[in-house]
Design a binder for these strands. Structure first.
Lengths: 217, 217, 217, 217
DNA sequence: AATGAATGAGCTTTCATTCAT
DNA sequence: CATGAATGAAAGCTCATTCAT
């Protein structure tokens, strides 16, 4: 009974936490870390400021928990995709589709990811960000291992798998941001194949002529 | 003589402005906009706070002037590279080298560029950022026009030049950031060709086999 | 019990507000709006600056609340006097006595009234002052209606009631200020009848009754 | 020659002073002391800030000089009117007309007079204001002496001449302010006789019965 | 455990005044 | 003498955090 009670409490607590984080996410993505006050989060989540501080050490901790959670969500999803029993290109395609869908569902969450991985405050919150960064790094390593597999299977060129990972990420990010800023530039939406196509075949014409190979048809 | 005096004053003023902007740049890149105070900028630049406000309307204006200046510097350099009388790939290669060198010389300035084009404050300062953004957009268009030329000359695949531009940028950014975070990953430094190679030929092995073409040999 | 608790809180809050307003009143009347800082008000009221801003939106709001409160207090008192079931002159006399007593009890509060109705800031805070001004205007109208009644009952001369109101106010103010600046000029204090006497009978000697005097023609 | 030069200089200096004071007057009456900056005065007068400080010790001194000058101008004019070789009522009427005209010509200058004699900062600048106040007090005494003469000549009732002076001022002020705030209330403009009429005969009807004379129409 | 009033350090910004030119 | 850039004290105000209830 004791245990049950605790577990009920814990479930309650987790639920509260959820509501707070959801409210905060909305505010942070809409306005940025510095333009959101604890007061606003308290209002939106319908908890008191004091309660916020019962759940999170301080504003930074709250923000970080948010980022960590989303990173884990994202990374978990992508891990599963990359671990599937499918051929390399298929897994990469799903990886890309997942990424697009994820940021479509959490519009402008990507800005927070970017702020965290590339942004201005990179060196201040570094300690706190480490958890999130570790999660993302692990994902990067997983991607790299898939890339390595692709190289071994001669699907990809004999390049450093880390470079291939970077390339994949860079292309994804660039397309995602452009799509967010100019949605009209992608009348049919952003398709994983747009990115995959460039990733696999590059931009050069002659090669393209030579190789309808990479085509998924 | 009158003129000379005026010009001396103006040179002085410009010099002051320089010192302020340099001090501010260092602080902003190190700590981010919100974590730098006017007091700090005053201290570092060895001017009084009042003087800062004689040169710039407010903190945002100072920051924006900084960003605009660097954007113009960067865009000007790249424009010149892209306008040279050389073949398309050569111009792209210089574009990449320039970018690498620029951010090598202005370490972590890129974080500000990113913060401005992708960062959290994207929707708040948008009005003020417009000048900088316009400069960068013009550069993007220039890049796209070079891409278009490449497509016409059958150097590049028949793809949307804007997509090619995005790809180039995405690849550059990804490599640059990785190099900044893990310099040891590039024992010989970051070379334009690493990026160019992937950009032109993609990752796919078969195509690579087919195409030593793009090789810069 | 719940209710009691709430009410206690509200009473507390109202009490805090009182203390802040009292401290502010003292400072403002002694030094004028622009020569009082929020810091000073915080010190004098023994609250923190933050608390001041919990009660009032900003300095202007605090000041305005103060003015409005005092205006209402004054106007309410005078309204009741003018509505009494007594003859016109009696009501006017009480109106005068009330005014004298009010400004005796709130020494130099009148300076704020003047600053608000006549002062330098007349055109800047006009929007905010409107509440107070409306209250005072309503009182003026009430006075004018009493004047009208006096005219109808042939107690007063057939003059514009608004002019009579102006006259009453002008005389009151002049006497009040002189008394404040030179209390020794009124050894027995300022009596309503001094003002009423001039208001009702003017300055002209009996000879005036014979009055070829005023007639210019 | 030395003398001439000096005198030319002095004339020049006086002229400069004029221009500064004129510019300042306009700004102060329009915005109030605290809402005018030395910078603004410098701009409007087309002198440098440094020059302002050559002519006036500080902002307060500048403001005070302005007030003093206008007080002297006003008092001088009124002195001459009161000293004329005319009967008492005639001199009072001219006094009133002068006052109306003066403040008509210097619209809203009266607000500064009020701020100075009744306003919020009465006790801060008291030292500086003393000159101006002395001038005005002397004028008050002159008015009182005319009142005394009126009493002696049985033109006015046997009342304290100071009270009569107060009454005259209070009536004037009230009418002037009302006229400024509601010009439409005086379709034919503000006439000295409106004030004089009430001043001399008060509001009471019986006297009026004796004298329908005063009616101008 | 939950609350939110109270706190006050610290921010951006203004502007009277000085003084080297 | 005239100038106006430079100054920096001091203002109003915010908001993360605490803690008595």
């Amino acid at each position: 009974m004791r245990e049950k009670k605790l577990s009920r409490r814990e479930r309650l607590k987790a639920g509260y936490c959820r509501e707070i984080l959801d409210a905060a996410l909305e505010l942070f993505t809409a306005n940025g870390y510095h333009n959101v006050t604890m007061h606003q989060i308290a209002m939106k989540s319908e908890f008191s400021i004091g309660t916020l501080y019962n759940f999170f050490k301080n504003k930074e901790d709250l923000y970080h928990s948010l980022v960590l959670e989303k990173c884990k969500e994202y990374a978990g999803m992508q891990f599963r995709a990359l671990q599937k029993d499918a051929d390399v290109l298929e897994r990469i395609r799903e990886f890309l589709s997942n990424g697009i869908r994820f940021f479509l569902d959490n519009t402008s969450l990507i800005r927070i990811f970017i702020a965290e991985t590339r942004g201005e405050s990179f060196n201040l919150r570094s300690k706190l960000r480490n958890d999130a960064r570790r999660v993302m790094n692990e994902l990067d390593e997983k991607v790299a291992s898939v890339m390595r597999e692709g190289v071994q299977k001669k699907i990809f060129r004999r390049l450093d798998p880390v470079h291939l990972t970077l390339a994949l990420q860079g292309l994804s990010e660039a397309f995602l941001f452009h799509w967010m800023d100019y949605p009209e530039a992608f009348p049919d939406g952003l398709q994983a194949d747009m990115i995959l196509d460039i990733f696999t075949r590059g931009s050069t014409a002659q090669t393209a002529a030579a190789g309808p190979a990479a085509g998924r048809g």
